[in-house]
């Protein structure tokens, strides 16, 4: 059997059968794993209270009760919390983009003694699970008097993130050095090379960094739980956690709130997934 590009020949029957089988399996899995849970959450969010507890179960909300959302929003200032979350996420994006590009550039392009050792150290920190650092960091922020403010949630991003530095460094390594050298011959300084040549070419890894930073910060629960005490300063996740206590069995309202909480990351994800899945697969990462 000589190798041939399959698409130029009619597919054999067994191949076609496999394709149909795989397609059906994936469809069934997607329905069961993604469709059912998210659909159930969304449908519940529009139901009346009596319909949640009905037997036999009522699948479609009738009537559709939009009021669930306004009920939740009057009980818990989720819009306010969303702004807080957004603020923290944007500051982290700014911090990460600033610091990670610079550090990655230095590691990728500049020669200095100890560079390889330091880069190995950076890679080693990638292996340190975040939760080990939870308590030690709290102690530092406690000593600095930052507990109760947003500073512990924002400031570290300005000192870079090992994962994003690694991602960008790998990307910069693929940019031909000829570009730098041509600019240097024209008298460009290192800063010029960084800001005028490398940075404009780094848009794809910067996109991945920005999107992931947003998603991580939006979904983060433990850090805000530890550092934020003021109700007005709550993030979305802290607010959603209060839903449970407030509406003990009003699952329609709880699901309405939860649905509101997942809409921003879901929308962002669907717009950015082209960048994201490629970028993630290339370096190996999961959320």
């Amino acid at each position: 059997m000589a190798p041939f590009p399959p698409r130029f020949l009619p597919l054999s029957w067994s191949r076609r059968f496999t394709t149909v089988l795989v397609f059906l399996t994936l469809t069934a899995l997607a329905l069961l794993m993604i469709g059912v849970p998210i659909g159930w959450m969304a449908l519940t969010a529009f139901k009346e209270r009596s319909q949640i507890f009905a037997w036999p179960p009522v699948y479609w909300p009738d009537p559709v009760r939009w009021q669930n959302f306004s009920d939740v929003l009057t009980q818990i200032p989720l819009a306010r919390f969303a702004l807080n979350s957004l603020f923290i996420a944007v500051m982290n994006i700014v911090g990460n983009l600033f610091s990670c590009t610079l550090v990655a550039f230095a590691f990728a392009r500049l020669r200095f003694p100890g560079r390889n050792t330091l880069f190995l150290l950076l890679l080693a920190t990638l292996m340190i699970p975040g939760q080990i650092m939870l308590l030690p960091r709290f102690v530092v922020f406690q000593t600095l008097g930052w507990v109760g403010s947003y500073l512990p949630l924002i400031v570290p991003s300005f000192f870079g993130n090992a994962f994003f530095i690694f991602l960008m460094r790998q990307y910069i390594m693929t940019i031909p050095r000829d570009l730098d050298e041509a600019a240097r011959i024209d008298g460009a300084s290192t800063w010029d090379v960084f800001s005028k040549i490398i940075l404009p070419l780094c848009v794809p890894p910067m996109m991945v960094t920005a999107v992931l930073t947003f998603l991580w910060n939006w979904n983060e629960f433990l850090d805000p739980l530890i550092y934020i005490s003021d109700y007005d300063a709550y993030t979305v996740q802290l607010g959603l956690n209060m839903l449970k206590g407030r509406y003990n069995i009003q699952w329609n309202l709880i699901m309405a709130g939860s649905l509101l909480g997942v809409i921003p990351p879901a929308v962002l994800y669907f717009f950015a997934q082209k960048y994201l899945i490629g970028g993630i697969a290339s370096v190996g990462l999961k959320g």
Partner: peptide
């Protein structure tokens, strides 16, 4: 691919509450 990756980007309290209800 997009669908199966979706749960990774939706984590946090919403998803915990969703599972509690499911």
């Amino acid at each position: 691919r997009t669908l199966f990756y979706l749960p990774v980007v939706l984590s946090g309290v919403s998803v915990a509450l969703m599972w509690m209800w499911l």
